[in-house]
Amino acid sequence: MLQTDQDKKASHIRNLSTLELAQALMERLAISPQDWHQFKSNRKVRASEQAAAAIVFLLKDQPEEALQRLNQASSWLDRSISAPPCPTHGRATKSG
């Protein structure tokens, strides 16, 4: 019996550890350097990124780090934090 692509994907996912799945999710949700300016202030994107990181830290038995990331995710959602300005914009550069 031939496996369908969907069956192969499901089988692959079942073979991954919970930590590997969480790390894959964290990588998927991380803002890439080329997308930073587009998403740096997007609250849903930033909260998702931090929540995924929290799961990874929790699975690695680092509850303090997990809590920090969960607090950051919560702060993005409740609007108590905002993205800092980009360090490479708005500053005059020194020339020799």
Rank of each mutant, 00 (worst) to 15 (best):
S74A: 08
V56H: 02
W76T: 00
A52F: 05
S95F: 11
M26K: 06
G90P: 03
L21V: 02
G96L: 09
R28T: 06
P84T: 12
D5R: 11
A30V: 06
H12D: 07
Q72Y: 12
Q72D: 14
S75V: 07
D35A: 14
A83G: 06
R28N: 10
P85W: 08
I55Q: 10
D7C: 06
Q3V: 09
P84I: 12
D35M: 14
R14S: 03
A54C: 04
Q23E: 12
E27W: 08
S32V: 12
K94L: 07
A24W: 09
E20F: 01
S41E: 15
S11G: 03
L29G: 01
P33Q: 10
F57H: 13
S82Q: 15
C86V: 11
M26Y: 04
A53F: 07
A66L: 03
D78C: 02
R79P: 00
A47G: 03
P87L: 09
T4P: 02
L2K: 11
A53S: 14
T18A: 07
S80H: 06
A52Q: 03
E49S: 03
T88V: 12
S32W: 11
Q23P: 01
F57N: 05
I13E: 10
P85S: 14
D5G: 08
H37F: 13
M1S: 14
L29D: 04
L19I: 00
A54G: 04
Q50C: 09
Q6P: 00
A22W: 05
R43T: 01
R28L: 09
K9Q: 04
T93Y: 10
D5S: 10
A51F: 10
P87H: 09
Q38N: 13
L29M: 05
E20D: 05
R46Y: 06
S80N: 04
M1A: 14
D7A: 11
P63T: 01
Q23Y: 05
D78N: 11
S32N: 11
A52G: 02
K60T: 07
L67V: 13
N15A: 13
E65F: 14
N71H: 13
M26H: 07
S95N: 08
